[in-house]
Write a protein that binds this DNA or RNA. Structure first.
Lengths: 112, 112
DNA sequence: TTGCATGCCTAATTGCGTTAGGTATTATCG
DNA sequence: CGATAATACCTAACGCAATTAGGCATGCAA
């Protein structure tokens, strides 16, 4: 999937929504997003990490280093209350645009 | 609606989809978009015109000056064959992301 | 021991939305 | 008649953020 703007628009809501089902870390988020989108969203790490840092700076997520699987060092992110609230707002924004697109996609739009 | 990235992602598919129902000019496009989105998408002219110019440069639309309503000078845009093709691609991209979001929005996602 | 997967990160470039203007004509209202 | 809003087009400068292109470290398989 090529559209740069769409990737940008999807990043925040996708990450927030994904973290809704529990804390997660960067590398795993990349794989989950690719899986859930059936390969459509195949983010680079250089896309994801700055977004995560920005979300944290904005107080929407918090991070915590943990050692899992014996000895793997990972930085886990989880949603804050503000993050959950923001997720709802993002969802509404997305759905508003989606509704508009659905109307325009209908072949028989009566003009005026 | 505030999200800059979402505005950017919506602009191209919205304009192409809108032109699918016939040629149109900038100022009217602004009003149609606002109307169809129920005020959610309230674009500035400074957003729209550069996008239209870009679409034309990319061969997705062509423009033509016309005098309508007696004496109003307007620049009408209409889709090219490439534009119609691009619209379908944009639509597929959007729907792919939408499907992924829908999955993530479901409250009970079984992790792995 | 060479490569691939896992796991994190950042700097420079570039594209583009926003802010903030500009110009010109026509319609409306006091 | 004069002012203001609506119609209709446009661009320059700023700033944010995705992409390109790297870097570093560990573990495992061929």
């Amino acid at each position: 999937m090529n559209s740069k703007a769409l990737v940008a628009a999807a990043a925040k809501p996708v990450i927030l929504a994904l973290l809704m089902s529990g804390e997660n870390y960067g590398y795993q988020i990349l794989k989950r997003v690719k899986q859930v989108s059936e390969g459509t969203l195949d983010w680079s790490e250089a896309l994801l990490y700055p977004v995560l840092h920005r979300l944290e700076k904005d107080g929407l997520v918090v991070s915590q280093w943990k050692i899992s699987d014996g000895n793997r060092l990972r930085k886990y992110y989880r949603l804050t209350a503000a993050g959950k609230k923001e997720l709802l707002a993002e969802k509404e924004n997305w759905l508003s645009v989606h509704r508009a697109l659905q109307i325009l996609w209908e072949p028989s739009v009566i003009k005026d």
